[in-house]
Amino acid sequence: MFKMSEYSFVAGLLATGLALIVYLLAFASLRLARSRTAYAGAGGPALGNAAMPTVTVTSGTTRGGLGTYATIITWLAFVFLTAALIFRAIHTGHGPFANMYEFSIAFAWGTLGGYLYFERKYRQRVLALVALPVALAMMLYATTIPATAEPLVPALQNNLLLTVHVAVAIIAYGTFSVAFGAAVLHLVQPATGRRGLPRPELLDEISYRAVVIGFPFLTLVIVLGAVWADVAWGSYWSWDPKETASLVTWLIYGAYLHARVVRGWRGNKAALLLVLGFAATLFTYFGNLFFGGLHSYSGLNNNN
């Protein structure tokens, strides 16, 4: 099972890399075609036509195939990662919460899943140009960590709660990756939009839809974390750096939800909050590396 998990992971990694390349090619060829046909549209896409995506890589007859292939490869990567996680869970007997290796694969899985969900819904393949690198980076990071499964320390032996906690976190992080992708695409273009990229309003919408899923899930992550802390450490909240960082993330996304309805905060500023929120997400995620382990024990338990 361990070997199977490793193979699936590597396959997932390669597929994601390949998918990213194909997306890049699809996008580049689309732009090329656009400039060649000297697109003389009447000043860009009409604003009122809200549901019409600006970039539909599938739409072109010749290049269309490329985008579709990219999607198929991404699905394949997603399936490989799913298999990797399942095989590993069978091997270790628990969910992917015991170390950064497991959790990084899960993070990448969540990002791919989030992206694919939003691709189906909004057909904006450009998002892949941000979301896939995030997933890829997570997987590359995972390759730097020993994959061996260590037995669980007692505090982590709360299987059900932790598995749910992490599963929910992965969904939240996956959607935040998508929101981040849309926010980046929003920030790189002027308010009036740039040809070849989705309209700012549509990106705004995608981000919002993503956060609308992510925010309740992040809330649940924090609440479940508090339940676990209460059972294992004697208080639901102890300002542990990891909890604290997740609170920062929650506050930033909370601020984002409200910023969207404050005049002067819509658009770029809201998108900036999403970038900050994702930075906070990563900070929470990699927090362990800066702060040392989770809650520190009294230090005596390993001196016996």
Binding site: V248, V262, F283
Partner: peptide
Amino acid sequence: SMRFGLLLMLVLALLTLVGTMLVQ
């Protein structure tokens, strides 16, 4: 005012961030 609420959320986030960066 939402603007004030927004400010409070961001300031609280900032203070909390300081709490994770500085030894307590």
